Amino acid sequence: MKKLLTLLLVCAVAGLAFAAPAKKAAKKAKAPEKTKAEFIIVESDEYDAGKEDVLLTAGIAQFLNAEPTVTKVSYKEAAADPKMANLDYSFLPLYLIKKTDDIRAKLEKHLQYGYAQENDDFIILPRQTRQGVFNGKTGKPGVMELFVMSQCPYGAMAENLVIQAQKDGKMPEGKDIKVRYIVNYDEKNGFGSLHGPAEWEEDVRQLLIAKYYPEKFWKYLEIRNKDYRSSRWDKAMEEAGINTKKIMKKFDKEGIELLKEEAKYAAEYGVNASPTFLWEGKVQLDFGSAAQIEGFGFLNPNAAQPGAAAVPAGSC
């Protein structure tokens, strides 16, 4: 028995002897140093929407586990810099990160799948923001284009906000809102829309109504948006005072061609979320930022009046 107690005591002392250095070592251990990430953000010279998104910068730095340093330059300055002169500035802001082996390794998958690009000096992160500026596009003064999917609840919400503003006399003078449609098209597969064929067919009808009954277009949307997935679009047309036969007679030829043009236009701007706002043909905006344009405060969904919208802000 004494031998057993002696053995246990020896083991306990030995355990303490090995444990003590481990605790001391733990105190001396240092957290690994963060990588340094040198950001260069190329901003628009014209619009605030083309400036740095500080939350995005912080998010990228966190993903890289890096300590960021940020240098902001204007498009004109970047275009004059030999190291940056040949980059694609079609959409601003453009995010650049000075290339190092460590940064490249952390973004290897992004490079592999085309979400990031690279040259000798930088990792290039194009089109990272939900709002931004299309550099070099021809301007459309005073025009707000509203891109929607016709059976998207958030798109219908945006339209309802416009309808309510019209009723309340809040539409800004000298400015216009035009509805555009988000749809895919190719010769082999035809049209494709997120909510199915019924959605792109509704797009066609709305395009024809906008062309031949422009004064009744918003009235139709007001009625249709109460039940936009119903198959009884004809009732909505009749209630709005639209000749259903006239519209459907033009569906297969003219209507289809109009929708092809919409598919081309949405693809040109890379729009795929409903709703998306395009101000003056150059500035891409979301709900929050669109409401900041002078005269368009009614596009803030949080300030909507009862009945103006049935769903919270978001996108399809």
Rank of each mutant, 00 (worst) to 15 (best):
I247W: 05
A290N: 01
A263G: 11
T276I: 02
A263R: 08
E268C: 04
A267V: 02
K253G: 15
K260M: 08
E268F: 03
A263P: 09
K253I: 14
S289T: 13
L278Q: 08
A273V: 05
A273C: 08
G288I: 05
L259I: 04
W279D: 07
E254Y: 01
E262G: 02
K260Q: 14
T276G: 03
K250W: 10
E254M: 02
L278P: 06
K246G: 12
A266T: 09
K245W: 04
G270W: 06
Q284G: 07
L285K: 00
F287D: 11
K245G: 08
N272T: 14
A263N: 10
A291R: 00
L278H: 07
K253C: 12
F277R: 01
K245F: 01
L278C: 08
A267E: 14
K249A: 15
E257R: 09
S289K: 09
D286N: 07
E254R: 01
L258C: 11
M248E: 15
A291I: 00
P275K: 08
D252Q: 13
A273Y: 07
K249C: 11
I247T: 12
E262T: 03
F277W: 03
M248V: 13
G270P: 01
K249S: 15
P275C: 08
M248I: 13
L259W: 02
W279I: 06
F277V: 00
V283S: 05
K249I: 10
L278T: 09
Y269G: 00
L259P: 03
M248L: 15
K250I: 06
D252N: 14
L258G: 14
F251Y: 15
G255E: 12
F277T: 06
E254I: 06
K264L: 09
T276S: 00
K260L: 10
D252H: 11
Q284Y: 02
E261F: 03
S274P: 07
K249P: 10
G288T: 12
K264E: 14
N272V: 12
Y265T: 13
F287L: 05
V271R: 10
E257S: 11
D286V: 00
L259V: 07
V271D: 14
E261S: 13
Y265H: 15
A273R: 11
K264N: 13
Y269I: 01
E268I: 05
A291F: 04
D252T: 10
I256R: 11
K264T: 12
G270C: 05
G281R: 02
I247C: 12
M248G: 12
S274F: 00
V283A: 02
Y265L: 15
F251A: 09
G270D: 09
A291M: 03
Y269T: 05
K260C: 11
K282S: 03
P275R: 05
G281C: 05
K282F: 00
I247H: 11
G270T: 09
Y265I: 08
K260W: 01
V283P: 01
T276V: 00
K264R: 14
G270L: 06
Y265A: 15
K246F: 15
E257L: 08
A290G: 03
